[in-house]
Design a protein around this nucleic acid. Structure first.
Length: 126
DNA sequence: ACCATGACTAGAA
DNA sequence: CTTCTAGCCATGG
């Protein structure tokens, strides 16, 4: 039947001639994350959804794990969980680094959570 | 190859 | 309201 499960990402396996593993999810996530406008935030699920794997929001977060070692760097501080909670702040240099970065861009954080999250929310691919 | 973990999310109890 | 379960899939031991 009509296989509606068409994957937008389609794995996009960009095989690296370097012989290293292909980026797959990671590059896609990084690419989307870099498109987040300054002063805006998004959620892991939103990125995952754009990639066609909304149920794999975990991979988005996991991809961020390597965000600091890719070039150009990925603004992982603009990626929060679905409720605007800075769940990944512990992965930054300091516990307050993520919040400071966001506040510096005009995003208000209160109690480790983005104020008016939906208002600052940026829809990937928009 | 198998098992455990992880920066998530949605739904059920 | 809180707590738990299941699904997702890549990485590492």
């Amino acid at each position: 039947m009509a296989t509606k499960k068409n994957k937008p990402a389609d794995r996009l396996k960009t095989v690296k001639p370097s012989g290293k593993r292909e980026e797959t999810f990671f590059e896609l996530v990084f690419d989307v994350a870099r498109q987040i406008p300054k002063g805006k935030v998004t959620s892991y699920g939103a990125i995952a959804e754009i990639l066609g794997t909304k149920l794999s929001a975990r991979m988005v977060g996991w991809a961020m794990n390597g965000a600091h070692k890719v070039n150009p760097p990925v603004p992982a501080h603009r990626v929060v969980n679905r409720v605007g909670l800075l769940t990944g702040k512990h992965h930054f240099s300091t516990n307050t680094k993520m919040q400071e970065l966001l506040e510096k861009e005009g995003v208000i954080i209160k109690n480790d959570q983005v104020v008016n999250f939906q208002k600052y929310f940026w829809n990937p691919g928009e």
